[in-house]
Amino acid sequence: MDKPQPTEIKVLAELARLRLEDQTAARIAGQLERILDWFRSLDAIDTAGVEPSPYAVVLRNVTRPDEPATATDDLPHGQDILNCGPEQTKDCYLVPPVLGS
């Protein structure tokens, strides 16, 4: 298994939209390296042909009927949801432009 370099940590941080100062990146890279070393203990286990288990239950085909929200639905809708946002205008969530001015 490969270990991440501090530059890679910066890429991961960018993907996760987190700011990491060089110093923090280096410290976390060091910690991650130790953790990944430890994760590498898994290499010793023979998992050839073993199915991965992404789920903790063996359920299948859990669906809901295609029926609109009824009067008894206790979830809030529309305006009540919009009002949770920190900044709104013209019935929309306001966000900064993709590119700065």
Binding site: D2, L36, L42, D43, T47
Partner: peptide, 13 residues
């Protein structure tokens, strides 16, 4: 494959 998938296989075991 090396990390996430491997962990899920160990989970099966």
């Amino acid at each position: 494959d090396a990390y996430y998938k491997k962990a899920l296989q160990v989970r099966t075991l």
